[in-house]
Design a protein around this nucleic acid. Structure first.
Length: 385
DNA sequence: TCTGGGGTCCTAGGACCC
DNA sequence: TCTGGGGTCCTAGGACCC
């Protein structure tokens, strides 16, 4: 098997830069300290993509605009143009299809291409990869990295070796030399949590992970440990899958509101607008949903999620929203129950009057009233009848 | 570290059944 | 009345990717 992994360098930024140049702009964003980022005022303010000059000033993808501006006060911030990005992504995909019918769109800016059968037609993989890289640069105006190997994992890791505008091979025989010295966090599927856990186990490079005992990793990471060991050793037998097969499993939309939502009605309006979008997409895909899930992020960035299986699969906005609403109210009541329980505990310990609802002072009405006995454990006779 | 939005997969624990 | 094990389904949460 010969697999290519094609990855656009700083995709959003490169695409915006190419677009501007094509439309007569005098600047090239890639040569300036610039980023693609959301609107801070709408609380969408994170770095989505950065130029090399911005990277040199220490700017990291995913950090807040505030942090980024602290590092580089003259930073140029451009809002994302998702329509443009979709067009650029499509153009690259079409070009790649000229070299193999087996192209998997892994994300908006990444594709896997199965070159195995194309080799007879186009010849040496490395030469073809350079041709593709050059054609994308000339015809579409942006640069890519291409990794070449005998499986998807290594092709992807190979593409990361050195950027931008590069072709690299990472065949199994090269793994020890090229991949093992890298920090373990560079390995696909090793994120923040896993990296921290591995560090505690004194595993800091991909090589150290590769040479650990699989049983030891399984002990600490369950089935995930086996996957980590295989990836560190360059083992992967997954297929390049074309188009969208198997079909996507879920359809979801989310949004960050520019202010804190505190009111149930307001929250439900947001949920309704999201439900509408999801339902429209589902009907376009001719898909039916079996489970409805909502997720809510608090102002402190804590997340809760609730889901419910439907008695019958559906795609109607109203039917979906009815479940959404009921899930939200369940959550709402749960919060009330937690609050009630806490207040009861405090009152039991310090007396009922220790907590008074804010609306009672100066109202002339006692904050807690009703009943005849102080102690609820002895109900009066009438309540038993 | 603290304001994106779109996904996938795994695991633990509880309910329920036999 | 208590005990037991195995299987399935469901939900919440957390890991990862781009």
């Amino acid at each position: 098997m010969i697999i290519f992994h094609i990855d656009v360098n700083s995709a959003y930024l490169s695409w915006q830069a190419a677009y501007e140049l094509e439309n007569g702009s005098a600047r090239d964003l890639r040569t300036l300290p610039s980023i693609i980022g959301g609107d801070q005022a709408k609380r969408h303010g994170i770095v989505l993509a950065k130029s090399l000059p911005a990277k040199k000033q220490g700017i990291i993808t995913g950090e807040s605009l505030m942090e980024a501006r602290l590092k580089c006060p003259s930073l140029l911030v451009i809002p994302p143009n998702y329509q443009l990005f979709a067009q650029c992504s499509e153009a690259m995909y079409e070009l790649l299809l000229e070299y193999s019918p087996h192209v998997q769109r892994y994300s908006v800016d990444e594709c896997f291409l199965d070159y195995t059968a194309s080799q007879r037609l186009f010849g040496d993989p490395e030469e073809t990869a350079h041709t593709i890289r050059n054609r994308i640069k000339e015809e579409l105006g942006f640069t890519v990295n291409i990794g070449i190997s005998s499986n998807k994992l290594l092709a992807k890791m190979g593409g990361e070796l050195q950027k931008p505008d590069q072709v690299h091979t990472l065949f199994p025989a090269e793994v020890a030399e090229k991949m093992w010295p890298l920090p373990v966090g560079d390995l696909f599927m090793v994120g923040r949590a896993t990296r921290k856990k591995l560090k505690r186990l004194n595993i800091q490079t991909i090589g150290a992970l590769a040479n650990s005992e699989p049983a030891f990793l399984r002990l600490h990471f369950k089935s995930y440990g086996t996957l980590l060991w295989q990836y560190a050793n360059g083992i992967d037998d997954s297929f390049v899958r074309e188009s969208n097969f198997p079909a996507q499993k879920g359809v979801g939309n989310s949004t960050t509101i520019s202010f804190d939502v505190t009111d149930r009605k307001e929250a439900l309006l947001v949920l309704l607008s999201l439900t509408e979008k999801v339902a429209i997409r589902m009907r376009r895909k001719k898909a039916l949903g079996q489970v409805v899930a909502i997720s809510i992020k608090s102002f402190q960035l804590e997340r809760v999620s609730h889901q419910r299986r439907l008695p019958h699969p559906c795609q109607s906005t109203r039917a979906l929203y009815e479940v959404v609403e009921s899930l939200f109210d369940t959550y709402d009541r749960e919060k009330d129950a937690t609050l009630d329980a806490t207040m009861d505990r405090i009152r039991k310990r310090y007396g009922e009057k220790i907590l008074i609802r804010g609306c009672f002072p100066h109202s002339g009405i006692k904050s807690i009233q009703g009943g005849v006995a102080e102690n609820d454990d002895y109900p009066i006779m009438t309540s038993l009848l």
